[in-house]
């Protein structure tokens, strides 16, 4: 298991196929466990949400809309990716595995509590500082540029 790490680091995708074939030949009797598949699906959905957050953070015209995209997408994608890797880690139901999953759930709970809190604090700080939202009569790029210079 740890031998394949260096292969996938240095080899890229051409070596990745060989190591995938080896692994699939190795585990034909067992296959990927259902927990692995569920964890991969959860982490993939989390990556999609983080893609949404990143695109929103890059392209939205305003501080508030960027905050909207970043807060929601960041929180949900963190939760989903952490839960997915917790499920991937939980292959053998040993005591150490359960302890790891409990720690991961602690991180998930912590992020779920603190990310909306910091979003709220930053939003309130920006609002009381007078960051102007984009309105319909003022063009968005001019508004944000003018806001940036002040």
């Amino acid at each position: 298991m740890s031998m394949d790490v260096s292969d996938s680091f240095f080899g890229g995708f051409s070596l990745d196929f060989g190591f995938l074939a080896e692994a699939s030949a190795e585990i034909t009797h067992s296959g990927l466990s259902a927990l692995d598949v569920c964890g991969m699906i959860l982490a993939s959905v989390g990556l999609v949400f983080f893609l949404g957050a990143a695109v929103g953070l890059y392209r939205f015209p305003d501080f508030y809309t960027r905050m909207h995209a970043a807060g929601k997408g960041d929180t949900l994608s963190s939760l989903l990716i952490l839960l997915g890797f917790g499920l991937i880690t939980l292959d053998d139901f040993s005591m150490v595995g359960w302890l790891l999953v409990v720690k991961l759930l602690a991180i998930v709970l912590f992020i779920m509590l603190t990310s909306p809190t910091s979003t709220h604090a930053l939003m309130r700080a920006g609002y009381e500082d007078g960051v102007e939202p984009v309105t319909k009569r003022s063009p968005s790029t001019k508004n944000t540029k003018k806001e940036g210079e002040s």
Partner: peptide, 28 residues
Amino acid sequence: PALYRVAVGPTSFDRLVAVNVIGTKTAV
């Protein structure tokens, strides 16, 4: 993209939001 928002963010709060996102994703 978040790093781009840190670099060229118009207000300082944009930079803060992007730094917050990057920090959370670093934990992940």
